[in-house]
């Protein structure tokens, strides 16, 4: 990813993957709500003007409420992701970025029947500066690299620790492999960070460079 064209393709690929994933899940929520609304219409039609079963109606409304809450969470996630390009040099709270990266990667983990966990060690409000988008991109790639060959049932842990005027990140639970590793390595180095000896580990400086800038 040292040439600007490849960096741009990497960033756009990340943007597209997140948008596809969230919109796909939103579409599922919409489909469920449509079927639940249809189910209530079916029951009303079957009742032929008589009172419908109150308990069944309450249960169906409860199921609709669950899906609406899911939709609200997804819209919040997409909105926050959209705002990650508002400022290319700002303060980023590491624990929030880690949680956001996990949320963006959750569906990819579900498709592989894997679980994602996070741990931000002794750095509750640890701040680094730079582009939130770039940090999310790096953390997302690190998780995807871990997921690439992870067997079903794997639990991946993304750990962040303050270290050497920067932050050390590591993904444990599966050995990162494949194209995602190559992309991750290039992105880390172009952001001013470096890879560490342990597979899936890297260090980022307290001031992130914007790769390609």
């Amino acid at each position: 990813m040292s040439d600007p064209g490849e960096l741009l393709r990497g960033h756009l690929g990340f943007w597209g993957a997140v948008c596809r994933s969230i919109s796909h899940e939103m579409n599922n929520v919409t489909a469920i709500l449509i079927e639940l609304a249809g189910l209530m219409q079916d029951r009303l039609a079957a009742a032929g003007g008589q009172a419908v079963d109150g308990q069944k109606t309450a249960a169906t409304l409860g199921r609709m409420g669950t899906q609406l809450e899911r939709a609200r969470r997804l819209m919040g996630l997409l909105n926050r992701f959209g705002h990650s390009v508002d400022d290319f040099d700002t303060s980023i709270e590491v624990s929030e970025a880690v949680e956001q990266a996990l949320a963006l990667c959750r569906r990819f983990a579900d498709l592989k029947k894997c679980e994602l966990e996070s741990e931000v060690a002794a750095a509750g409000r640890y701040i680094i500066s730079g582009s939130p988008f770039v940090l999310l991109h790096i953390l997302f790639r690190a998780l995807r690299a871990g997921l690439e060959q992870a067997p079903a049932g794997t639990q991946l842990l993304l750990r962040a620790t303050a270290a050497e005027q920067g932050c050390r990140f590591e993904v444990t639970g599966a050995t990162p492999t494949g194209d995602e590793v190559r992309l991750l390595e290039q992105l880390v180095v172009a952001s001013g960070g470096r890879l560490l000896d342990q597979p899936g580990s890297f260090w980022l400086p307290a001031r992130l460079r914007f790769p390609g800038a």
Partner: peptide, 15 residues
């Protein structure tokens, strides 16, 4: 794999 979708659609088709 969306259980809620599958179960609701199944109920409507069964009816």
């Amino acid at each position: 794999d969306e259980r809620e979708f599958a179960e609701t659609l199944a109920e409507r088709l069964k009816s």
